[in-house]
């Protein structure tokens, strides 16, 4: 069977206080903390979504990148068939640690439900799905490092078997102020070819 080629429509990277979209820097700040950086980015792009401030860091990171890729992509008047395939290394460790601290002190034992909610990595996918009303297939994987082969295969299978019209793939890693998001939208049409090598190059940029 001759399989159709797939393409990368757009891609977005967030790391070191900088956001790049399709390779070009679109936002930079000199923040010391991610909380500050993410707030400035939110304000800069006029994202009017107060729930953003209730999210954990991993969700904020994924949400921001998805927002920039999807804001011109989503047509609210119809069903948007975009699958989400995400992965990272540390799962929800950053929030797990915060939560663990809240239950480990017997004298001051008040675990927070709002923190516990985010002790799963796929909650960030949920946040994106809620914002953009995506009811399509979604999954979250854990790898030692960015696995371009796995991601490429998965996105292709979804497109070839018509399980989705587009696939939003993402690596979203956050632990202790160290972070990197690399999200890209894969479709049946486009200019940049979707293959393992190109994904790898874009990730490492």
């Amino acid at each position: 069977m001759l399989e159709n080629k797939t393409y990368i429509e757009t891609f977005c990277t967030i790391q070191n206080n900088e956001i790049t979209l399709n390779g070009e820097t679109i936002f930079k700040s000199d923040s010391d903390l991610f909380a500050d950086f993410s707030k400035k980015a939110y304000q800069n792009f006029d994202i009017n979504y107060p729930k953003f401030f209730k999210m954990d860091n991993l969700s904020k990171l994924a949400f921001l990148a998805a927002e920039l890729l999807l804001k011109n992509e989503i047509d609210e008047s119809k069903e948007n068939d975009i699958a989400l395939v995400f992965a990272n290394k540390s799962s929800s460790l950053d929030t797990d640690v915060k939560y663990q601290n809240s239950i480990s002190d017997k004298e001051n034992y008040f675990p927070s439900p709002a923190v516990f909610v985010y002790t799963l990595p796929n909650i960030c996918i949920g946040e994106i799905s809620i914002k953009h009303q995506l009811k399509s297939e979604n999954s979250f994987f854990i790898f030692d490092a960015f696995n371009s082969e796995f991601m490429t295969n998965y996105a292709e299978v979804l497109l070839h078997t018509k399980k989705a019209e587009k696939v939003l793939c993402g690596w979203v890693e956050y632990y202790n102020e160290e972070y990197k998001a690399f999200l890209y939208l894969v479709a049946n049409e486009g200019k940049t070819e979707h293959n393992k090598q190109i994904i790898e190059n874009l990730y490492n940029k």
Binding site: V117, S129, I130, E137
Partner: peptide, 19 residues
């Protein structure tokens, strides 16, 4: 097999179980 997102809430399921 099938998978879908409920796109409703972080932990709660939607009223009519869309997902």
């Amino acid at each position: 097999y099938g998978n879908a997102n409920d796109a409703f809430h972080q932990t709660a399921s939607s009223e009519n179980g869309d997902g």
